[in-house]
Design a protein around this nucleic acid. Sequence first.
DNA 1: GTAGGGTTAG
Length: 642
Amino acid sequence: MATMYGRLGRRNILQQLPRILCRHIHNSSRLHQFNKFISNLIRSGRLSEARALFDSMEHRNTVTWNSMISGYVHGREIVKARQLFDEMPQRDIVSWNLIVSGYFSCRGSRFVEEGRKLFELMPQRDCISWNTVISGYAKNGKMEQALKLFNAMPERNVVSSNAVISGFLLNGDVHSAVGFFKKMPERDSASLSALISGLVRNGELDMAAGILHKFRSEDDGKDDLVHAYNTLIAGYGQRGQLEEARLLFDETLDDRGGENKDQRRLRRNVVSWNSMMMSYVKAGDIVSARELFDRMAERDTCSWNTVISGYVQISNMDEASKLCREMPSPDVLSWNSIVSGFAHNGNLNLAKDFFEKMPHKNLISWNTMIAGYEKNEDYKGAIRLFSQMQLEGERPDKHTLSSVISVCTGLVDLYLGRQIHQLATKIVLPDSPINNSLITMYSRCGAIADACTVFNEIKLYKDVITWNAMIGGYASHGLAAEALELFKLMKTFKIHPTYITFISVLNACAHAGLVEEGRMQFKSMITDYGIEPRIEHFASLVDILGRQGQLKEAMDLINTMPFRPDKAVWGALLGACKVHNNVELALVAADALIRLEPESSAPYVLLYNMYANLGQWDDAESVRMLMEEKNVKKQAGYSWVD
DNA sequence: GTAGGGTTAG
């Protein structure tokens, strides 16, 4: 048939064939086009549109079904993939490989077991089937199983070995990976890249550089090394080691280099440029990044997106949006960067405009916009968008939930908070950073017991943020003993406290009136942990001294500390003056506070109440008049009497 | 349409 096509051309064939066959060819080429269209839609993440097309098709072949299954597998929708797999009239080996791969790419042993079961049920297996399961086990941290299958498979190829290398490195076993690589009978450029990228992920950049250079000097030169170079350039770039990145970039050769062995292997490509550009962006050197961008002979979407992200990072939104308009085909990433840039700039309206105008949104688009609302304290907007996203069929993930929990914290909405917590238990792994936001949310909402429950249910991994959240929760509830006890416990777990930990610890001391403990902790922070005291720590110390009536010491501290006192510092002093009826210093503190925040009524009210308590009604009245004169409005929640 | 390796957005 192919040769007939070639000789006669399509039209002649159609004229010579019986009509029914004609129709078949017509249909099959249409079918082929439909299939291509479906896979294009899936490639650009437009899964529901692909499904609509799939449903509307009159004729489907195995490829059609497989494409749709592959879409669901990539979209992590294993249930839908399985439904199609069960429904399809005929399954070939690709269908089986797809569904097995689908189960293995879902986390959780339930899925892994189902994938393995299907693998066992397969009518026949090829190398791809085995490799799918090997890498599936490796990705789920089951290297023993992966190796067992690797040894059991009837025929191996280099992909099988590469999957094992990646597996070792995914599980942090650098030593085995390097050993395995060295003993491999056959390696290709992907083997080297797998090793290099895994080493980078495990922070072994210099080891990676050593192996790369050794490979380059020893190997026969048929392999393309630029992949591995690119990984390492990006790795150094990510870590801010700009000099190392640049040295490697300079080792790669000009795009149109000659034809000798090394030049073929090291020819720089668009990803090399992008990685180097990204390194500059990460280092904050957007001028050099732009220079590279302008020098590039060929740019892809990622090049544009990288330079755009650079401008977003330095808040040059004019240039960022100009580039987004100029670029040939902005994708969802470009749009997301712009939305994120405006949101971080506090320009929520423009962020919203761009968000609404986006041709396609993905989960990150929604998360960016929701986080934008949250950061700009438009909590209602965030909640509105959160509901809208679910109505439009987008499933929230840990990033979404993290923002929405912060929204609950901002709104002090315990009811909503509990609902989101409920939702989170269905979506997110039990041990996750989400718990940190939950602890903060519950304690800010006054539900310290719930915060405590969340804290205690974290079994595997509590990071310093977890401890900070819980200690801070106790401190803000005045539970000083609990806060200090937890702080002690944290140190026995060898968790290094941060400046935030000490803010809570000092606050706890203040609440409990523990002057000596507070002083001791302040000193320990500096000498034992090398943490520079910030103004918040001084404010706490002023609070501690003040509460104990050591007002003169507090004032001395304010005068000698290396910061210009802010409203927290003066507020602490003023509060202490009120408790200890020190009018003289109260006037100093109130005066300073009024200078810092002329529109705030709090210092006036406090002074008024002080005078009133002392029976100095004339002075009280003059404070009230001064307030009227300065046109300061009393805010709700402040009392004229105690 | 299926297995391993590179860059960009939350």
